[in-house]
């Protein structure tokens, strides 16, 4: 974590009851409310996530708080200032990495860092930054010739070159391969550890769960859940699950009998149902113990036991009542 700051108690970013409606895109279409009511606070030194499907209002929220867009209602404070009233006040202190690549194809990595660095009164050391972002070997390469991951890393470097207090990273890992994603995640943690408060906008559940200290889930322009990833997952209602696999059909049939009987007599076990060639047992947090004890007592040994992971996706399903689909809220082109 970052060194505690004197005013660690006051939020770095405060958004309350933010609202933004776009005028009708076409004749006949109604105005589109991108953000109807979004509030959250970000503390210094944390990685804060805004998570939700595409079209949920994430980018609009971030653009309002970066002073790039004018909100219709609500208030925004960044480092105590109102970016809606005077966006220039926060430019020096808020680094932004936008969704799309935003450089000339023929500018080199080092040139881009130099130019962007020249915009700020205080600037990070280019060599250090290149090192942090693993770009030192590519510093003379042109932007258009970089890989997707390298482009993203450069984009992050440019967001950090002005020594910002807050870095906004929008859809950081879209289009990256798994290895590059993991590397980027580590990098974001290093950035946070260097003292920068990170606002991470993402539609990836796993990314938010892995990286964020706290997050809001946004859906349909509203905050539908807020908290730490673990608290949100802990707070899930309903059963936990265990999946069991057996070496042969005989063992599986015996186990099915045992576990069905167990479900009837033990309150901690709700049900045991076959799923493919496995058995899924659901129940309270004690379900795993109950299952293992029952099987051990009867000397039925499973080949494999897995607890079913509960994720932010389950949180989304619970708070919205529907499956999480990334493109769900996208407007269908007429």
């Amino acid at each position: 974590m970052a060194t505690p700051q004197p005013d660690a108690g006051t939020p770095v970013v405060e958004v309350s009851h933010l609202r933004k409606t776009y005028p009708a895109a076409r004749r006949g279409a109604g105005p589109k409310t991108a953000v109807s009511d979004v509030s959250f606070q970000i503390a210094r030194g944390e990685i804060f996530g805004i998570l939700g499907p595409n079209g949920a209002g994430k980018t609009t929220t971030v653009e309002c708080l970066a002073g790039l867009r004018h909100a219709d209602g609500g208030t925004v404070r960044v480092l105590g200032q109102d970016p809606q009233a005077d966006p220039l006040l926060i430019r020096e202190h808020v680094g932004v990495q936008l969704q799309e690549a935003a450089l000339h194809d023929k500018i080199t990595v080092a040139e881009a860092l130099d130019v962007f660095g020249s915009f700020y009164t205080e600037r990070a050391d280019s060599a250090e930054l290149l090192d942090l972002l693993d770009l030192t070997a590519h510093r003379h390469q042109q932007f258009g010739k970089l890989s997707g991951g390298q482009k993203q890393r450069l984009s992050i470097a440019l967001a950090l070159v002005g020594k910002p207090q807050v870095a906004i990273l929008d859809e950081l890992t879209t289009g990256l391969d798994p290895a590059a994603r993991r590397a980027t995640w580590e990098l974001v943690e290093r950035v946070r550890d260097s003292g920068v408060t990170v606002l991470l906008v993402t539609h990836f559940m796993d990314e938010a769960e892995r990286l964020c200290d706290r997050l809001v889930v946004i859906d349909g322009g509203r905050v539908v859940a807020e908290g730490t990833p673990s608290a949100l997952i802990e707070g899930l209602e309903g059963d936990r699950g265990v999946r069991l696999r057996f070496a042969d059909d005989g063992a599986r049939d015996r186990a099915t009998q045992l576990l069905t009987a167990l479900a009837e007599r033990d309150d901690d076990v709700t049900a045991a149902v076959p799923v493919g060639d496995e058995i899924e047992v659901t129940g309270t947090r004690k379900v795993l113990f109950a299952v293992v004890q029952a099987l051990a007592a009867a000397d039925v040994v499973p080949d494999d036991v897995r607890t079913l992971e509960r994720t932010l996706e389950d949180v989304f399903v619970q708070v919205t009542g529907r499956q999480y689909r990334v493109e769900e809220n996208e407007e269908v082109a007429a």
């Binding site: 005013d7 210094r44 480092l79 020096e92 202190h93 250090e128 207090q165 260097s194 003292g195 920068v196």
Partner: peptide, 10 residues
């Protein structure tokens, strides 16, 4: 990079 100073932006 080092931890940033807490300065109110001007």
């Amino acid at each position: 990079m080092t931890a940033v100073e807490t300065t109110r932006p001007v």
